[in-house]
Amino acid sequence: MSRRAPLVLMYHGVDHVPADRDPHAMFVTPQAFRDQVEHLLEEGFVPLSERAYVEGRCSGSLPPRSVLITFDDGYVGVGEHALPVLESFGVPSVLYVPAALVGGCSDWLEPRHRHPLMTGEELRSVDRRGMAVGAHGTDHQDLTRVSGGELRRQTTGARRALGELLGRPVTSFAFPFGSHDARVRTAVRDAGYDTAFAVHEAAGGFAVGRVDVNAIDTMRTFRLKLHRLYPRARRVSGRVPAVRRVVHDLLGRAPRDPGVELAGRAGAR
Rank of each mutant, 00 (worst) to 15 (best):
G192H: 06
R239L: 13
R265T: 12
G192D: 04
R21N: 09
T144I: 06
V76C: 04
V78E: 05
L62S: 00
G44Q: 08
G148E: 11
L262I: 11
V199D: 04
T195S: 11
G77C: 05
V240D: 08
L262D: 01
H248G: 13
T186G: 07
L41H: 12
V46C: 12
C58V: 12
F173K: 00
P98H: 13
R129Q: 06
F71A: 04
R152S: 12
L62R: 02
R235H: 07
G74V: 14
E42I: 10
L151V: 06
V133Y: 13
V14C: 08
L224P: 00
A242Y: 09
V243E: 07
V91G: 03
V211E: 01
Q36M: 11
M118N: 00
P30R: 06
G103D: 06
D72S: 11
M26W: 10
G104L: 06
G137V: 01
P111V: 05
A25R: 14
A5E: 15
A161L: 12
P92S: 02
L101D: 05
E110W: 12
A100C: 04
R183P: 08
R228W: 15
V260Y: 07
L262V: 12
Y193M: 05
D22H: 12
H115D: 10
A207S: 08
P98L: 13
P84D: 14
A207E: 03
T156K: 05
L151P: 02
V213E: 04
Q36D: 12
R51W: 06
H24D: 12
S88L: 09
R183T: 15
P231R: 00
R244H: 10
G134R: 00
G149Y: 11
M1H: 15
T70K: 00
F222L: 11
L250K: 05
D20W: 14
S61H: 10
R153A: 14
E87M: 13
G56L: 02
R3S: 15
H39L: 15
L226F: 10
R128Q: 15
P30G: 04
R269F: 15
P92K: 01
L41A: 05
R245E: 11
E38Y: 00
S172D: 14
D72Q: 09
G264L: 05
R124T: 04
P47Q: 10
V236K: 03
E121D: 14
D35M: 10
E55Y: 07
S147H: 05
D22W: 06
V54L: 13
D35H: 07
T221L: 06
E110L: 15
A191P: 07
D107T: 12
M10F: 02
L109H: 09
E42R: 14
L162C: 01
A135T: 09
R21D: 07
P84G: 10
V213S: 08
V54A: 13
A32N: 11
